[in-house]
Design a protein around this nucleic acid. Structure first.
Length: 363
DNA sequence: TAGAATGATTCGTG
DNA sequence: CACGAATCATTCTA
């Protein structure tokens, strides 16, 4: 087959034309002495093209070959390209102009914020730290969950990057393939370089939508991981013994009015390494449970009262201040000697808190 | 493993 | 919004 080199040669001639689309000899063809002859030429070519399907395969091949070598072929291709450009592509081009995708930007931002698409080092640690802060939990034993979270995030990150790489490779391969195909076909079909460019853009858009799906599902995975992580942290975990003791100490030494002020709650929270709302929860639960079953808590109450008394004795003998958090709401304060404890008990018996308990019992 | 203990959540109320 | 009350869900313990 010696068709190709000759075809390529004839195609190269298109670029040599003075006008993009109409080569010199065609532009001149509108008038002049041999104008009628050229019109005749074009008419012949068109006639041959129209009738090519009626011929046998061999005849058609021969005719095709002859047409490809025809001196008017480049010009005809250019004209056809121009017509195509003005009709189909212009419509398609106008339709497919898209504004910058806001959703894609959101996804990109989220992936960056979660450390999935950003730089490798420290990825996700910010999110983990934020989650840890949100938990407000007792610090040390969360490290296992942190590393678990980070490991899962790294896994997602790796999958994302692998898939992205695959996508980019596939996109490049496909684009190259289509470009080669179109270049190849442009020898026998009127395909302009601009059209090839457009086709590449279309392919990129299509792959871009796949990329968006990838980003979307990655975002979903991160969200699920995060919610699971946070849910896991919401799991109830008993406070450590020291924290419980601090809280009980406060509760029983302020039994007449076990409602710590905001400042006292903050101080307790700090001491116990828990959040203020956890302190509130604890006091809420404690009050209601104490109220429901005073008898059951009596022993505990006595124990803490005795302990508070001992502390108070030590404090007064050392002349320093009580270590208990300050409480504007407190009727009793922290310093209780044995007799003071009796006073405290008396006050407790008539305290608003227990009055409410009694009225509840009577009703 | 059942039941108790306990931290968290939800809902109604003042 | 703080609180009480009921309830849920998990952990502890015998």
């Amino acid at each position: 087959m010696d068709e190709q080199p000759r075809l390529m040669h004839s195609h190269a001639g298109v670029g040599m034309a003075g006008h993009p689309g109409l080569p010199q000899h065609m532009q001149e063809g509108t008038g002049g002495a041999d104008g009628d002859g050229r019109k005749q030429d074009i008419g012949d070519i068109l006639q041959q093209i129209m009738t090519i399907t009626d011929q046998s395969l061999d005849e058609a091949q021969a005719r095709k070959h002859a047409l490809n070598c025809h001196r008017m072929k480049p010009a005809l291709f250019n004209v056809l390209c121009e017509i195509k450009e003005k009709t189909v592509l212009s419509i398609r081009g106008a339709q497919e102009e898209e504004p910058p995708d806001a959703q894609l930007m959101r996804l990109d931002n989220m992936l960056l914020a979660e450390g999935v698409s950003g730089p490798e080092k420290g990825g996700g640690s910010a999110a983990a730290a934020a989650a840890a802060a949100a938990s407000g939990g007792a610090g040390a034993d969360n490290s296992a969950e942190h590393s678990d979270y980070r490991a899962k995030l790294a896994q997602i990150r790796q999958i994302y990057h692998t898939e992205l790489e695959k996508y980019e490779q596939a996109c490049n391969e496909f684009t190259t393939h289509v470009m080669n195909l179109l270049r190849e076909q442009s020898r026998t079909r009127p395909i302009s370089p601009k059209e090839i460019e457009r086709m590449v853009a279309i392919i990129h858009r299509k792959f871009s939508s796949i990329q968006m799906q990838l980003k979307q599902s990655t975002c979903e995975a991160v969200m699920i991981l995060r919610s699971r992580f946070l849910d896991a942290r919401r799991k109830r975990r008993n406070f450590n013994k020291q924290a419980t003791e601090i809280l009980n100490e406060y509760f029983y030494s302020h039994l007449s009015n076990p409602y710590p002020s905001e400042e006292a709650k903050e101080e307790l929270a700090k001491k116990c390494s828990i959040t203020v709302s956890q302190v509130s929860n604890w006091f809420g639960n404690k009050r209601i449970r104490y109220k429901k079953n005073i008898g059951k808590f009596q022993e505990e109450a006595n124990m803490y009262a005795a302990r508070t008394a001992v502390n108070a004795t030590n404090v007064s003998s050392h002349g320093s201040q009580a270590n208990s958090p300050s409480t504007p709401n407190s009727a009793g304060g922290g310093s209780l000697t044995h007799s003071a404890h009796n006073d405290e008990t008396l006050r407790f018996m008539s305290s608003p808190f227990l009055c409410r308990i009694r009225s509840l019992r009577n009703s």
